[in-house]
Amino acid sequence: MRRAAIVLLAWGLLLGVLTAAQAPFASVKGPFGLHPIEYIMLGSASAACLIAGLVVWVLDGREGDREIPRTVADGSFATATLIVGLALALVGAGFGLWLILIGAGIAMLGAGGLVREGRARRHSQRGMLR
């Protein structure tokens, strides 16, 4: 299972090599030459992918090949509520504080619901494992 991280590490490395491939073009002078934003963006993507690979490597190392029992709620109104609230709050940035506050309120309801769902899951999981 640890091999999964290899995909991320390999691809991140590939992006790094392609970033380095910009170097020969530093000799082109003027506006058609190299611009920092070009290698900063690509280099950042490479770094992010490598970091993700390391994270997956560590996580896989800890879990190993054990099958983890998972409990999944069939539905999550809390998630829908949270996103609707956040969406309204975002759009509110263009329409006024009143909408931001309404959205934030709905989002808090959603977040509270998620906490409840999390507690219910832990409760049922404890019940299962007994």
Binding site: T71, A73, F77, S124
Partner: peptide
């Protein structure tokens, strides 16, 4: 499979 489902009450909005 090691998953179980907790049912949700309001079926029409599933």
């Amino acid at each position: 499979m090691n998953t179980t489902t907790l049912p949700v009450r309001a079926a029409p909005l599933r």
